[in-house]
Design a protein around this nucleic acid. Structure first.
Lengths: 213, 213
DNA sequence: ACCTGAACACCGTTCAAGT
DNA sequence: ACCTGAACACCGTTCAAGT
C-alpha cells in the first residue's frame, strides 16, 4: 500500500497549533484546514506529518498523557495515587476541549503504558493481590477519567449547578428522593472536596481488596 | 428570535432512522442528509422536527435514557442498584455507536432525572446519610457509565485484549509492574465478571458510607 | 525533500419558494 | 402546514504537479 514515510520535525508545532485552536474555538474548530492555516501551510502539507485527521487526534491524546505528573516512586502508595489522580484532573482543566478524546480514542501509546505501570505499582505496594491489580487499576482510572470528563464536559455542572431547573420539568410526586434531598441539591457543590472524598472512598476499596475480599 | 415551532409527530421515525444509520455505519455516518434520505425526505424537512443536528443528537441521548430498565421499587436497594447498572451496560452494548454521547452531551431530560431519583432512593434505603447521597450517586453513575463507554469504545479491549503488544513498544525495565503482573495481563478478561466484581466493590463503598464515614 | 493547487465527494444551515 | 431547491461556507482526502 502507498503508506508514505511520516516526518516528525514539525509534529510538535502542528500539535501546538491544534491545541491552541481547540482552546480558543472548541474541538469542532480543529480541522486540517484551520490547523494548516495557523502554521502557515497548505492543508495537504500536514499529511506529511500525520496520516490523516484521526492520527492527529490520537497524537493530541498522546500529549495529554505526557502532561500527567512524573512521580516520586519513594512516596507512599496512597500519595502516589492521589497525586496522579489530581494530575489527571488538572490536565482535564487545562485542556477541557480535547480531554474527552481520552475516552473516545483507545490510546495505547508508550506514555499511556508508563502511567498504567505507575498505577499497577501503587496497587501492588498497597497490598492488592496480583490477580486483582489489573481490574482495580481499570476501576480507579475509569472513575478518575470519567469524573474529569464529566466536570469539563458539563455533565456535572449543567444539571447539578442549578438543580431547581431539573426538578421543575417533572411533577414533584414523581421525584420523592429529590424532594427529600432538596436542601442538599440546592446547595452549590465544591468539586475539589467532592473529588477528594471520592478518592478517599476509592482508597477504602483498595484497602479492602488488599485485606483480601 | 426566529425560533419556529417544532413538530413532534415524525420525531420517533427520524430517531429510528438515525439510530439505524449509526448502528450500520457508525456515528460519523449520521448526518442530516443521510437521515433525511432514509425516511425519504429532503434534509431541510428535518428542521421542522429538530432545531438542528445538535438537537437530534440530544434526542438520541434521550432515547438511551428511556432504554434503562423500569425497576421494582419493592426490591432490596442493592438489587435495584445492580439491576440499573446492568441495564446501563446492556444499553451500551445495544447502542455502542451512540452510547458515548451520554458523556459528551449534558442531558437533563425528564427521563434522566427519573433515573437519578431511583438511584437516590436506593442510596437512601442503603442508609447513606442524606448529605452524602448526591455525591455517592455521581460516584456510582460516573463509574458505571465510564465502564460501559470504555467497553464499547475500545478503551478496554484494544489495549488489554492483547497486552503483549502494549509492552512490546517499551523496554521491559521501564515497566517493572507490568513484568510482575505478566501472567494476569496475558490472560483474556471476562468483562461480565469484572463488572460484577466492580459493582461489589462499589456496594462496599456504599455500605461504608452508610456506617458513617 | 517538502510543499502547493485543483478537484471530488461530502458536511450543516439559511433563505426563498412551492403545494 | 409541510416540504423542496438552490446556494453558502465549510469539511477530509486524492492526485498530480511544482521547486
Amino acid at each position: 500500500v502507498g503508506t508514505r514515510k511520516i516526518k516528525t520535525e514539525r509534529q510538535p508545532e502542528i500539535l501546538d497549533a491544534a491545541l491552541a485552536i481547540a482552546d480558543e474555538r472548541g474541538l469542532d474548530a480543529v480541522s486540517m484546514r484551520t490547523v494548516a492555516q495557523r502554521i502557515g501551510v497548505t492543508p495537504m502539507a500536514l499529511y506529511g506529518y500525520f496520516s490523516g485527521k484521526d492520527a492527529l487526534l490520537d497524537a493530541i491524546v498522546g500529549r495529554l498523557l505526557t502532561a500527567f505528573p512524573r512521580l516520586d516512586s519513594a512516596a507512599p502508595w496512597d500519595q502516589r495515587l492521589e497525586r496522579i489522580a489530581q494530575g489527571v484532573r488538572e490536565t482535564a482543566r487545562k485542556y477541557p476541549a480535547v480531554f474527552p478524546l481520552l475516552f473516545a480514542r483507545p490510546s495505547v501509546t508508550p506514555d499511556a503504558v508508563l502511567v498504567v505501570d505507575v498505577l499497577y505499582q501503587a496497587l501492588l505496594d498497597a497490598g492488592v493481590p496480583e490477580a486483582h491489580v489489573p481490574r482495580v487499576e481499570r476501576l480507579v482510572s475509569t472513575f478518575v477519567i470519567g469524573f474529569a470528563i464529566s466536570e469539563v464536559s458539563g455533565r456535572f455542572s449543567v444539571g447539578s449547578a442549578d438543580p431547581r431547573s431539573r426538578r421543575a420539568t417533572l411533577a414533584p410526586e414523581l421525584l420523592p428522593a429529590h424532594n427529600r434531598l432538596a436542601p442538599y441539591l440546592d446547595a452549590p457543590v465544591d468539586w475539589d472536596a467532592e473529588f477528594e472524598a471520592d478518592l478517599r472512598d476509592l482508597m477504602g476499596t483498595i484497602k479492602a481488596a488488599a485485606r483480601g475480599r
